[in-house]
Measured scan of single mutants.
Amino acid sequence: MSHKQIYYSDKYDDEEFEYRHVMLPKDIAKLVPKTHLMSESEWRNLGVQQSQGWVHYMIHEPEPHILLFRRPLPKKPKK
């Protein structure tokens, strides 16, 4: 599979999560399941490479070739 064609967005966040999206080329996108969110082993098997802790959290129906990921931000110590 062509890992060079996978595009990784910059990371962005809110108060709770860090987010990123990953755009897959058409040949890989056709392998994305339409019935469920992928486990880490499933998206890694497609060639997506990112650190541990990312969760495929949403399917964007109009653009199924874009995978939406998030992971919890580290808890800030209370002052």
Rank of each mutant, 00 (worst) to 15 (best):
M38D: 00
T35K: 13
P62N: 15
M58F: 04
F17K: 01
E63T: 10
S41A: 14
H3N: 14
V32E: 02
H60L: 08
D27Y: 03
V22N: 03
L31Q: 11
I66M: 09
P62K: 15
D14Q: 05
D13A: 14
S9F: 14
H3C: 08
T35R: 10
K75N: 14
K76L: 11
K76V: 11
Y19C: 02
P64L: 04
P64M: 05
H65T: 09
L67G: 03
P64D: 09
K78G: 13
W43R: 04
E15L: 12
P74E: 12
L68S: 07
L24F: 04
D14K: 00
R70M: 00
L73S: 09
K75T: 12
R70D: 00
K75W: 08
K75L: 10
P64G: 07
E15K: 01
K75H: 12
K79T: 12
P72H: 06
Y57V: 04
G53H: 07
V22E: 03
T35C: 10
A29C: 08
E63D: 14
E18L: 03
W54T: 04
R44M: 04
Q49K: 13
N45S: 13
D13N: 14
E63L: 05
K78R: 12
P74I: 12
I66G: 02
K26G: 09
Y12I: 03
H65A: 08
S2Y: 15
Y12R: 14
K26V: 08
F69W: 04
K4Q: 10
E42S: 00
E40Y: 09
A29I: 03
R70L: 01
L46D: 01
Y12A: 08
K76Y: 12
M1Q: 11
M38V: 02
Y7H: 10
H65F: 09
S39Y: 01
L73F: 04
E42W: 04
I66L: 06
E15N: 09
H60I: 07
L68I: 10
P72F: 03
K26C: 08
M58C: 09
M23G: 07
Y19K: 01
K26Y: 09
I59R: 12
M23W: 14
L37S: 01
G53W: 00
P64R: 10
D27W: 04
E63H: 11
H56C: 06
R71H: 00
P64H: 07
Y12M: 06
V55T: 08
P25K: 04
Y12S: 06
K75Q: 11
K78I: 12
H36D: 03
H3A: 15
Q49T: 10
K11S: 12
L67P: 05
D13S: 15
S9Y: 12
Y19W: 03
M1L: 09
L37H: 00
M23K: 11
L46E: 00
R70G: 02
F69E: 02
V32C: 06
E15S: 15
H36T: 08
P33E: 04
D14V: 02
K4D: 15
V32Q: 00
F69D: 04
E42G: 03
V55M: 07
